[in-house]
Amino acid sequence: MAIFNIQKREIECKIVYYGPGRCGKTTNLEYIFKAFKKQVTGEMVSVDTEGDSTLFFDFLPLGLGKIKGCDVRVQIFTVPGQQKYSSTRKLVLKGVDGVVFVADSLEVRREKNMLSLKDLQQNLKDYGLSISRIPLVMQYNKRDLASEGLPIMSIEKMERDLNRQLKVPSFQASAIKGTGVGNTLQECLKMTLISLQRELKWSQ
């Protein structure tokens, strides 16, 4: 839940990158950290394991400057995607204002994508939030792996699997190359701020 300091005219909101293990959530944040230097207001923190998987979360603070007279700060988190970290994942999701769901385009990860989206829906529900109402953006990551000869799913198939009912904005991406990363984040920020503006009724 966003923190709105009326006296200081400051808003702090929380965006969470969700998705199955090894889908590229941390890679998204690493690219944002490198490419959005002007907006980054602190160090990126990664709490990972020896095997390089996210253990608790990654964290990156951004400052968007003044929007409608308010200083907007954004905390970006990733969750640990693996099944064994389900309780940590839920803790990190608490108080979320906007979600980027990073899906893995690899054919072999099809089921993991669907399970992770279901897990997101359940965890949001447990916090009294609805997946169909929260600002949500889909990212179909690892599109570049097709050129290396790995079987990836078509966008149509991924839309059918994950976005048939939600009908949220979706982006193709290759987080390792930075393709689609900025667009995904910008859309999620836009949707989140519109939603917060409506909710908090803040204006100039």
Binding site: D52, V108, L145
Partner: peptide, 8 residues
């Protein structure tokens, strides 16, 4: 090999 590289 590619999946191993992805740590899958």
């Amino acid at each position: 090999e590619l999946y191993k590289g992805q740590r899958l």
